[in-house]
C-alpha cells in the first residue's frame, strides 16, 4: 500500500490541473496583498500580514478552492483513463480496492496541500505588512477584520492555522465526491462538473431549515464557526468523506474496464 501511495504522489505533479492550480493559488494571495483598489472596492484596509491569509481563505472557499480540489481529484483517476494507463495498471497483481484506496488517500491529502500552499504564499505575500501584534482582527475570529482591540501574534497565528486546517478538512468530502463521480462517469471533466453541480444544487437546499445544517455545502463554512460549534460539522465532514470513499471503492470494484 505504501508503494502505491508513493507512486500516486509521484504522478501528482505531472497533472496539468495541479500545475494550473498552483499558478492560480499564487495569484490569489498576491492579489489581496498588493491590489491598489482593495479599499475602494471592498472597504478593506489591511494592517497586518495575518489578514492576507484570512482574505485568501475567505475568498478562496467561496468557489475557487472547491473548484480546484474537485478538478484535481477528478484528474487523479481521469488522467489514468485519458492516458489509457488504468487498464495497464489493473493487469498487474494489485487489487483494485487497494489501488483506488491509494487514490482516496491522495485525494484526502490533496485539499490540505492546496489550502496550506495558499497559506504559505499568503504569509510571503503579507511579509511587508509584518506579523507582530496589531489593532484589528484577522478576519477569521470575532469582530472580523475590525477585530476587538489588539490582537497578539500568537492569537492571530492560532486563528489562521485553525481556520486553514478546518477549511482543508471540510474540502476532503468535495475531493472524494469528485473521485467517486469520476469512477461513475470514467471521465475527469464529467466528474468535476458533476461535483460542482451537486455542490451548487446542495447549497440551494438551505431553504429547508431542518436540512440546512447537514448539507455538505454548509460544512464548507465550518472554518468560520466558533470553536464550541465545531463538533457536529467535523463529524458530518468525516461521515461524508467516509461515505464517498466507500462508495467510490464499491463502484470501482464492480466496473468493467
Amino acid at each position: 500500500m505504501g508503494m502505491l501511495i508513493r507512486l500516486e504522489l509521484s504522478k501528482w505533479f505531472h497533472l496539468s490541473s495541479v500545475r494550473f492550480s498552483l499558478v492560480l493559488l499564487v495569484l490569489l494571495p498576491a492579489m489581496w496583498a498588493y491590489a491598489p483598489g482593495i479599499f475602494d472596492v471592498y472597504g478593506v484596509f489591511l494592517v497586518s500580514g495575518y489578514q492576507v491569509p484570512a482574505l485568501s481563505l475567505l475568498s478562496g472557499m467561496e468557489f475557487l478552492f472547491p473548484l480546484l480540489v474537485a478538478i484535481i481529484a477528478a484528474e487523479l483517476l481521469g488522467s489514468e483513463i485519458a492516458f489509457g494507463t488504468l487498464r495497464a495498471t489493473l493487469l498487474r497483481p494489485v487489487s483494485r480496492a487497494q489501488w483506488l484506496l491509494a487514490k482516496v488517500l491522495v485525494a484526502t491529502l490533496m485539499p490540505f496541500f492546496v489550502v496550506f500552499f495558499v497559506l504559505a504564499v499568503s504569509i510571503i505575500a503579507g511579509l511587508f505588512l509584518g506579523f507582530g501584534p496589531f489593532v484589528g482582527g484577522t478576519g477569521l475570529g470575532a469582530g472580523g477584520l475590525a477585530g476587538q482591540g489588539v490582537t497578539t501574534a500568537a492569537a492571530a497565528s492560532s486563528e489562521v492555522l485553525r481556520a486553514y486546517a478546518i477549511a482543508a478538512f471540510s474540502l476532503v468530502p468535495v475531493s472524494l465526491l469528485a473521485l467517486l463521480l469520476t469512477t461513475v462517469f470514467m471521465n475527469a471533466a464529467s466528474g468535476a462538473l458533476a461535483t460542482l453541480g451537486l455542490l451548487i444544487v446542495s447549497s440551494l437546499f438551505v431553504v429547508f431549515p431542518w436540512l440546512s445544517s447537514y448539507l455538505l455545502t454548509t460544512q464548507l463554512n465550518a472554518y468560520q464557526f466558533p470553536f464550541h460549534e465545531l463538533t457536529t460539522p467535523l463529524i458530518l465532514i468525516a461521515v461524508y468523506a467516509i461515505l464517498f470513499a466507500v462508495v467510490a471503492v464499491f463502484v470501482f470494484e464492480r466496473k468493467d474496464f
Binding site: 508503494m3 507512486l7 504522478k11 505531472h14 492516458f83 489509457g84 494507463t85 487498464r87 495497464a88 495498471t89 493487469l91 498487474r92 497483481p93 494489485v94
Partner: peptide, 28 residues
C-alpha cells in the same frame, strides 16, 4: 500475467520508456 490490452499501448506520456517500465515493474 503479462498483457497489453490497449492499441496503441498506453503509457504515461511524461515519463520515458524506461521510466514507464520501472513504474510498471514496481506494480508487478
Amino acid at each position: 500475467l503479462g498483457a497489453m490490452v490497449e492499441a496503441p499501448a498506453a503509457f504515461y506520456p511524461y515519463l520515458s520508456g524506461r521510466g514507464n517500465l520501472q513504474l510498471q515493474a514496481r506494480l508487478a
